[in-house]
Design a protein around this nucleic acid. Sequence first.
DNA 1: CACAGAACGTA
DNA 2: CGTACGTTCTGTGT
Length: 960
Amino acid sequence: MVTMSDTSSTHVPDTLLVIDGHSLAFRAFFALPVESFTTSQGQPTNAVYGFLTMLSDVITNEHPTRLAVAFDVKGGTFRNDLLEEYKGTREAAPQELLSQLPLIQQALQALGVTYIEQPGYEGDDVIGTLASMGQQAGDRVLVLSGDRDAFQLIDDDTTVLYPGHHFKDLKHMTPAAVEEKYGVTPAQYPDLAALRGEKADNIPGVPGVGDGFAAKWIHQYGSLQGIIEHADQITGKKGEALRDNIDQVLLNRKVNALVRDLDLGVSVDDLTFGNVDHAELSALFSALQFGSRTRTKILNAFSNSTAQPGAVDVDAIADSDQQLQIPVLDQVTDAAALIAWAEQYLPAVTDDTQTTNEPATGENAAGRMDIVTQLHQQSNDCEEAVNASWTLVAVGNAKPGASSLKTIVLSAQGHAVVVAMRDTSLHDAVQQIISTHANTMSVHGYKALLHMAQSAGLNVPIPLFDTKLAGYLADPDYTGHTIDEYAEHFLRIDVPAVQTQAQGTLDFDNMDDETPTQDDKDLGLQAALVSAMARHLARELQQREQYALLRCIELPVSVVLYRMEQEGAAVDRMRLDSLLATFAEESGRMERMAWDAAGSEFNLSSPKKIGKVLFEDMGLTPLRKTKSGHYTTNAATLTTLYANAEEGSAAYVFLGAILRHRGVNKLQQIVQTLIDAINRTDGHIHTTFEQTVAATGRLSSTDPNLQNIPNRNAEGRDTRSAFIPAEGFDALLSADYSQVELRLMADFSGDEALIDAFKSGADFHRYVASLVYGIPVDDISGDQRSHVKAMSYGLAYGLSSYGLSQQLGITPKEADALKQQYFRTFGKVHEYLESLVATARERGYTETMFGRRRYFPALRSPNRMVREAAERAALNAPIQGSAADIMKMAMIRAERALRSQGMRSRIVLQIHDELVVQLAPGEHESATALVKDAMEHAVQLAVPLDVSTGIGTDWQLAQH
DNA sequence: CACAGAACGTA
DNA sequence: CGTACGTTCTGTGT
């Protein structure tokens, strides 16, 4: 390690590295393909990546002790005043590059690097000044720049690092190198450049004069001044051209002279670096979706080159982030051999590597701080434990109710075994290994593994680590589908390339045996990828204090979800059939009615054709268009048209029929989907709850989606009557949180008025309305209540006055007045919501009450629409996300309570703020009390968490 | 056969 | 011109 020099007595000369920020970013941007460097949110990162890795390379190779980066400032420089067309042909930097400059500056800030912008001057002038400062201080000076004007700075102690044809190849431009290439000294270089011109900067030189002739003249006459004095002696076309362009050349010379004596307000002693803000840097790297190698490379460069007081030694971190290790495939033919293999390679079983998965247990309500503290305490040593973990990969079908297990791979310490599960002779050995070693096991997608294992009769306890869940916590906006995709995203590796490379190495270690199949090799690689991701993500989670979120929330809730999916939801087939018949009949009637009115038979499901009939055939005036330019024919538009149509007219009948058809057809389709999803074996519907899809932390439901069963009107709600308790159960319980998100806002903001509103126990919206309008509760009209209610619910979405006015059918002015009055009444709520966005903009991410993060790079977008959309999402994320965290905690608590009390009642469905539980006979009251308590006391807030419950023989009847 | 867009269901 | 999802359908392009 190089120690920082003591400024009072320098023995070893310092090395000052000066960087031309814009030119380096520019070169990086055009050198690296933007397609390969873009985050999932669409933020290009190629320039950031190129810049930082180049900087790291230079630091590693050159060991500078001082460092500064110069940037151009927006707006003209003094050169524009001199030369109007200066840089005129240089294309305006593309947006994809411009958007990266702030990111580069953020990274430099986090890395503790000084960067300088000087209004009115170019980065070049700052560089010239810095170089002079370094020279005067006796430093060795390195200038990293893609601009040849920098060559004039070169002397015996000053070298320009200039990117060659390949961005990565830096040429060391010393006095000798300049003379060799151009035939002039560095001091003469500006004269040469003035004669030749600079095409990239749109600076014309003398036509027909290139480096060669320019150098020849400089030699002959000593300098540009000498050439001009003897211009009439130069013969031929070139001499003539020179005489015609003397003014231009002199101007060029004036422009390409670097200013070297700016007042930058810093001294070279200030240009230390390496005081890395690891939290900031880590957040930024995550936002940029940089992989482990990149991070390690950059961190290493900065940690090894300096020894700043307080700088963190990142060697340990870097070491733990090992490179991908391709395992050797071992052949195991019998159970004894498999057990022996496990004993040899799997980590020894210990009691203390496994942290508990009990989030805030206890009879009395645990305070939120207690839980958070507890969560964080459990983060200790996760990295170490995961580094010593082994990996299990399963291949098969994870569809609930139709699962199967084909193959499993066990891998540890550079070895792997592939076990085909078709052969059942190894089952017991596999079970034994999993049972004893689960607490040191890493997997990718525990819930899916549970489904597959279940089909083979295997029991898999909660593993130490899950890379799918961890990846979701690290970057919830990323949605990959395969292990390969996850690895490419999080490790920034090229899996096909690794695969090719692995072909030769992935072999059975015993050469006497048969060679491994391609499948075996692929599986060995899969295990290696999971293992590498586990190490990488464990470090990531530990740094962000999110490890407990994985262990205490996501992993335990995986088990609950697995059981819900495995059990499925029982349905009344007859009821579904009858609903389908009713909806189909009505749908058909409406279709004929619409066709009659239109005078032609066409596909009513085609908005295009509806638009044609309405706005072309019938001559109605379109109210609005979709963004792709088609007629809007959605329900809101058609309803307005319907209201304005003449009663009894063809258009009126047509619109009425279409609207009715749309509604009933949708219901028919939903019922049909449900019928198709009924499992042949048990008659239940097995949805899959996606645990890593919704960016806020919510679950989603697919195949089929049971979280969007109609509920808004009576007709749709009938669909819910088809959901019934399974055999052996005699009722369903529906338990839902009332106004969780609003209650969270009350707690987070600390707004006394809103807190009191919840504590009052009165009709909440009526109570709030009385505060907003300043009139007694009893005098609140229905309109007033519903307006305030809409406002309250719109809060967490960043609702605009316009949106509110649309929803309530009032003028935007009235809506705005309501909004103003609302925020006057609940001032702290307003402040809180604004602070959410402000903090997100500052830190780059939002956080839920349990530390679940979501990154919002778009908050810095120059595009207003994009930026404002990000602001609304950033406002909503911590609120929706905290509600999701709470529900997950509640599910874990409820499931555990039911089991520990020996009850048979079980959770069947989760619909964001509602749990549906099937109740066993005799457990109605007791199970309801347990579930309600688990939900109400999942966390302690400043306001009570209110849960309303209802019991019935079907889902519709259970609703209250 | 894959994809985007429109529409609409939920919290 | 309000957040977060999933599914179905059409129409278009391969």
